[in-house]
Each structure stands twice: as structure tokens, then as C-alpha cells.
Write a protein that binds this DNA or RNA. Structure first.
Lengths: 229, 229
DNA sequence: CTGGATCAGTGGCTCATCCACTGAGCCATC
DNA sequence: GATGGCTCAGTGGATGAGCCACTGATCCAG
């Protein structure tokens, strides 16, 4: 386990972000001036500006020179990069919707990959599949599992799907412990993955699609119920 | 037309980002130290830090205290928020893949919305549809069209799809001129939208799905060919 | 009523300076 | 020879004072 110490700016971003997500700073409203905020949080204006700059990059606020910093409506203008923080902020609601999107988009990606399968991709997939089965620790299995999704996304022939999968996987990071559960027993994980991986490698598009949907639905049911821990 | 003057930090971000995307700073490599970079670009270290902070938020680099700033592999760790800059950077390739993803995910969203249609959503949709038809300028039509996508995403009952749609729509912003083309003639735009909107409002899920795919495919063909301008 | 000047308040940016962290290398100790 | 602690150079983190540029409201002269 690596000890990670948040930087001051990270902490500031978290505080301000929570203020926005919780509605303390509602959409359309202006934040207090940088000088006021800096005084309120007991930091330099420089540090506060760093934090605001990152909030702006996230699409949570918008800063205009000479005017002020306005809160945006993240629901109507935000992107999936907000998911990780939303999942921890209000939990189950966002998590379930993320799972649903992942399942449906995952099925799309899997079907595409099956259609376009190439020898190289299949080799990667088999190797990763074996890595999951052989993994001694839950962490290893989890990492390998993530890699499988990424390899499939790459095999879909559309890099945009790679980005979407990355975002959806990142949304899980904060609740990683829950996710690891189904992989505590490497044998079971292997058993569950086989049909999907085999189907994709064999190029059976229709069957792969069906298998993918079934696999993802089952996996997520386990994750949400917290069963098998 | 509003005149937007980029801030110094914006320009810095653009320069550094191009350096990363172009491979001048390859994945895994370390950037020069902040002091060196600041000198090279003729700016204060403070400003440079702001820029690096935003690059980090974008997932392009990773900064570690006492060590340095390392370039990440955006293809394997980035999210769809990178699309806008990739589309302008190397154009057609990313644009086509974005269109494909938008078409397939759009169809998913449309089908979902048709399944779960509610009176309120349908009213919104009809109003927007009429706004597109009535729009006097291409800009208006484009904005209303974006709104239709957002309303549909909202009607799908999954806020994550809203985020995904936002990201994909944002990817178009840099090439907005191209996109506006099919809407130069409001009458045609209206004619093209009708079947989809009607189908969703009528709740014919299967037909809506088919119509959505056909509509999106046609629209994007026009966009890519640049025809009808 | 209009157009320009003023002014208070806001964010943009700089500078000089110090602190905290990391990793490499040295060296005495075991 | 291996180990553990030390120093040191180089890196990013943070400060705070200060100045500049922009915006919008207000006021006033025309």
C-alpha cells in the first residue's frame, strides 16, 4: 500500500467541488471573489486560483476576467470525467446508472470487437484472461480485468470507445473494494470470463454479444449486492 | 460574434498539449523542469504551474513532488474530454470515429427514450423540434439540435448517457462550421427530424431505433462529405 | 437621451523567496 | 560486502506583496 498525501490544492479542489455538487454554490450563482475565498479557506490567492483553474477544466465553473467565477450546471454541460466524484458523493444512484451504461456500451464494444477480431488482439485477450485466472491477489485480478476491457475497446477499432471505457472504469476506482469482490476466488472469475473471451476470439458476433450482456449483467448484480465478500 | 481573447495560461496549455499530442514529449518521458520550461516560454513559473495543473487535470501528464512531470499515454488512460483537441489536431480520423460512436450510442439513447417516454419529455421534444424548424439562422438550428440530443439523453433515464452525449457533442465544437451545413435550410432540417421525433413521442421503440440509426447515418454522411454548403 | 469619463471591484500575472520531497551518492558501521 | 543513515542537489509546493487589465455601474457634460 502506497501512502498518498494530498496536496493543498487537491484539498481545495475537493472542498470547492463538494460545495458545487452539494448545491451550496448553485448553478448560475457567482462564487465569492478570489480574495474572499482565499481568506475564508486560509490559503493564498495563488493556491486558490490553481484550484479554481482545475474546477474550470472539469466544467464545474466558468471564470471571466473582471467579472467573477460562475457555477455551471454540471448535469447539462458536464462529461463522464465527473463520474468518479459523483459516485462517491451520492453513491448508489450514480453507481447503478454507470453500471447500466457500462453494460450497454460494453456489449456494443464487445460485438464490434467480435466482428473485427484479429490474431493479435485475440492473443492479447487470451493472455490477459490467463492472467486473471492465475492472479494470486484480488488487486492483480482487478487490474487484469480492467485491461481486458481496454483491449476489447482497442479491438473495436474505434479509439473513442477506448476513451468511453476509460471514463466508465475510472468511475469505479473510488469504490474499488466493492468491485474486487467477485474476483476473490480466481477460479470463479476465470470460469465466468471464459465464454465471453472464447466467443470473441472465435468471432461469433451474435453469440459474443449475448454472452457479453449476460456476463456484464451478472457481474454487476454481484457488485451491487455486495454478495460473495 | 463575440471576441474571445485567450489568456496566457490558455495559450501555454495549448502549446504544451500540442507538444504532448504531437509526440514531441512522448509518453513516459519527463518534461523539462518547471524552471526550465518557464524560461523557455518566457513566463513565470507560477503561470507555467497553472498550465501544468490543467494538463494534469486533463490526464495528459502526471506531476510528482520532488521528482518531475511525466507524460502519460493518453490513448490508454484518457477520456472523451480529450476529443475536442484531438479532432482539431489530426482531424478526419478522430472525427469519423467520434461520429460512429455518436451514431451507435445515439441509437441506444433514442431507443431507451422511446421505451420510457413521458409526457413532459415529449412536450420538450416537440417544442425543440419546432424551434429547429423555425430557426432563422444556422446557429439557432444548431443549438436547438444539440438541445434535442440532450433532452433525449435526459429522457433515457440515465444521467450517464447525458454526460456521454455532452462529451461527444463537445467534440464537434471545434469544427462547428462543418456541422451547421445540413441546417442551412430550416425546412430540410425539419423534414429530416420529423420521423425520429414522431416515433419517439409515439413510443414505437423498435421503429424509433431504426429511424434513429438511419437519421444519424444520413446526417453524418452529409457532414463528412461537406456537401450542401 | 446619448456618449464619454470615472471608479470600485474583479481576475490575470509577476516576482522573489522559502519549504518539502525525492533520489543518488557517500560513508561509517556491522 | 551489506546495511543503514547522512548529505546534497534538484524538483515541485506554497507564499504574499504588488501591479496590470478587464468589466460594469454610475455620473456628468453635451
Amino acid at each position: 500500500m502506497v501512502i498518498v498525501r494530498d496536496t493543498l490544492v487537491d484539498a481545495l479542489v475537493a472542498r470547492l467541488r463538494d460545495g458545487v455538487l452539494s448545491g451550496r454554490y448553485p448553478p448560475g450563482a457567482y462564487l465569492p471573489s478570489e480574495r474572499e475565498l482565499a481568506a475564508e479557506y486560509g490559503v493564498t490567492r495563488t493556491s486558490l486560483k490553481h484550484a479554481l483553474s482545475r474546477l474550470a477544466q472539469l466544467g464545474l465553473v466558468e471564470t471571466k476576467h473582471g467579472v467573477g467565477t460562475r457555477v455551471l450546471d454540471y448535469l447539462s454541460s458536464g462529461g463522464p470525467e465527473l463520474l468518479p466524484m459523483l459516485v462517491v458523493a451520492d453513491g448508489p444512484g450514480w453507481l447503478e446508472e454507470t453500471f447500466q451504461a457500462r453494460r450497454e456500451i460494453g456489449a456494443l464494444v464487445y460485438a464490434r470487437a467480435a466482428e473485427r477480431r484479429g490474431a493479435g488482439h485475440c492473443a492479447d485477450l487470451r493472455a490477459l484472461h490467463e492472467a486473471v485466472a492465475a492472479a494470486q491477489t484480488a488487486d492483480d485480478a482487478q487490474l487484469a480485468e480492467c485491461e481486458i476491457h481496454r483491449v476489447l475497446a482497442a479491438a473495436s477499432g474505434n479509439r473513442v470507445y477506448g476513451f468511453l471505457v476509460n471514463s466508465l472504469l475510472n468511475a469505479y476506482l473510488p469504490v474499488r473494494q466493492l468491485l474486487i469482490a467477485p474476483f476473490r476466488d480466481p477460479g470463479r472469475a476465470a470460469g465466468r470470463l471464459t465464454p465471453l473471451v472464447e466467443a470473441v476470439c472465435a468471432g461469433e458476433a451474435g453469440e459474443a454479444h449475448t454472452a457479453a450482456v449476460r456476463y456484464l449483467a451478472e457481474t454487476e448484480r454481484l457488485m451491487l449486492s455486495g454478495e460473495d465478500r
